[in-house]
Design a protein around this nucleic acid. Structure first.
Lengths: 355, 355
DNA sequence: AGCAGGGATGGTAGCGCTACCAACAGGCAT
DNA sequence: ATGCCTGTTGGTAGCGCTACCATCCCTGCT
């Protein structure tokens, strides 16, 4: 035990993490450090025999690669920046879940940012993210401000815009048409015989506005649009905000026979408000939500809603980003995952028409 | 325009990111690069005059520090690893929001991992995180397995366990007593005169089990415990699972006059199930939830729940982590943020006793 | 036999930053 | 004047890894 080995010397030195490095592994395996690097990154390029010796050395030392050193040397980080406008919102939690699960065991890290529905915040976060030269970016929506838009275009990495699709992608897009979804709900309520169909919206981000536009287009088509039918607020969405919006709408437009809500939280608020006021759903008033949260199906009455592919959007976004990082750009850069109108009790045509 | 400046030369070189570096800023400002480094990290140690020249150079070049290089040189990364068991769950979304907002504009990054309530997954993720030598770790719960526990103890960085408090912190803790919360709900229902109080629980993670234990302790105290009162599943929690559990409970124990749910989703399911079955709440059956989601207050009837300081837990956890990173260890390493029983219509003592 | 071509392996020189030490000036006590 | 401390600045040597090029050896061809 007279000699001290290399790593002991290393440990005593003033700098460094004290952990084994590539060079330690290389020394133990009796190969060059670059060969270890290759064996770890691209095993096919190293002979099976060396590969095994290296694997044994890695195990013995408990070697873990240093991502910072890799990033510095290769001038790229294995980080995907994800910008979403909210976390309170169940919708984006689902998207994030899809992103995380779509990642599998690949060594990418997710760097996540919450823009709080603010363009300035989005720009600020994007600047921070770009400072790290991420491998890819995933951003929510298609309505970035001009500065943000330009930053994305010059990002030098794949960019996936999610939640919505539109005509002019920065790079790639996964989502669905909120305009069409808004139209579909309005058409359905017209089909079941509603005349005075209100629209309730909280937060009113660009996607909600597009759904409202779909509603408005259909209502105008059948000559039933009326600005008093629309009740919105830019305040955050919540179940209690649904209650408030419904009360406000009824005050202004007491003859409403249906409300389309810009999301399920608002719809649930309306349901509770009706219950409290003794209004029969759907006999006296019909309710439609948006997103199809799990509870919509078991609510009493069950609530019509638009199922949106939130989880799937996350998965596809990450899949597209990974493909693009690997140089395999997907054929279609704009993917429409569609939506599905789930018709339930809350908008059933009553057996006997109400009044 | 005969000469090319330094950064043009840099751009033409085969390696590197092509972006300005500390040395470029130093050259432009006419100082040493280490001075620029100091001016950026600890401005007080650089004279005001140089500080200003450096700031101007940074602006002119659009210099952004390279975090990988910093991490490599300083042997530490400005990353806080956060492990939570779920993202679907509104509760943890709130915690994450608190963590992100508690971060403010400090240059720490959050590295987030979803353990899916699995010990193995937690261990795997922790291993990945530790490979990066994070500045701090935030983990959920106090029931880590022995391997995970040991890894945390040897992490070499501040560790905050959140959601729950217990007698034996790895390092720091922020949360509240789920046992006491469970007791409080049970006592309340006993106080309002309930005799046959059921407990419904989905997922039944350790925190839910502790709430159940609190319920059981109180029920035994008053001589009313009975295993048929408890209906649980390890399947994930959801509103529809609340419906299922309630049906199952009623089948086995038809004389239930109250149910304590292990969370608000389950409680909401029970409310819907009662509504569908024509059971009056609270006259025929009382419902208590847990977490106090925003909708509990506006539900019809409003639902009694235990307000838990989820957002605050996130904020405090990050504040404690930051303090510990800065070397200012908080006096109290275990912080009990408490809970609050919100008594609402769903557990009101009926004016006329039911039956 | 001689040589081109390709696959496997290694050496070297950074990537951009910070820790450590050295240097130097200016103020104070001796 | 000397010494010493404090505060400011700079030089240098890495941090652990990978890009680039060089080297070597083996195969198959002329």
């Amino acid at each position: 035990m007279a000699s001290s080995n290399d790593s002991e010397v290393r440990n005593r030195s003033r700098r460094g993490s004290g952990r084994p490095t590539l060079a330690d592994v290389a020394g133990l395996a009796g190969v060059g450090s670059i060969t270890v690097s290759r064996a770890l990154r691209d095993p096919a390029r190293v002979s099976p025999e060396l590969r095994q010796r290296i694997a044994a050395a890695v195990d013995e030392l408990g070697y873990v690669p240093n991502p910072s050193a890799r990033a510095l040397a290769s001038a790229r980080v294995d980080v995907i920046g994800v910008l979403v406008p909210s976390l309170t919102n169940n919708v984006f939690a689902e998207v994030l879940r899809g992103i995380h699960e779509g990642l599998g065991d690949c060594p990418l890290q997710i760097q996540f940012g919450n823009t709080h529905y603010s363009d300035e915040e989005e720009e600020r976060l994007l600047r921070v993210f770009l400072g790290q030269r991420p491998s890819a970016l995933i951003v929510s929506g298609i309505d970035q401000g001009p500065t943000t838009r330009q930053m994305l275009e010059e990002a030098g990495c794949p960019v996936v815009q999610i939640m919505e699709i539109g005509p002019d992608p920065v790079d790639m897009m996964v989502g669905f048409s909120h305009l069409e979804a808004g139209k579909a709900v309005a058409r359905h309520l017209i089909d079941v015989g509603c005349k005075r169909i209100g629209f309730l919206g909280a937060r009113m981000d660009p996607r909600s506005r597009r759904r409202l536009a779909g509603y408005e287009a259909v209502m105008r088509e059948v000559g039933r649009f009326d600005t008093t039918l629309v009740t919105t607020t830019t305040l955050p969405s919540s179940v209690s905000m649904g209650v408030n919006l419904f009360h406000k709408a009824l005050e202004e437009t007491p003859d409403l026979d249906a409300v389309i809500c810009n999301n399920d939280d608002v719809a649930l608020g309306v349901l509770f408000a009706c219950h409290r006021a003794g209004l029969q759903v759907p006999a006296q008033i019909r309710i439609a939500g948006f997103n199809d949260l799990e509870m919509m199906e078991v609510a009493s009455p069950s609530i019509t809603s638009v199922r949106t592919p939130r989880y799937e959007i996350g998965r596809r976004a990450i899949a597209m980003a990974r493909a693009a990082i690997a140089g395999k750009r997907p054929q279609r850069t704009v993917v429409d995952l569609g939506f599905e109108l789930k018709i339930r009790e809350s908008t059933m045509r009553p057996a006997v028409p109400a009044l």
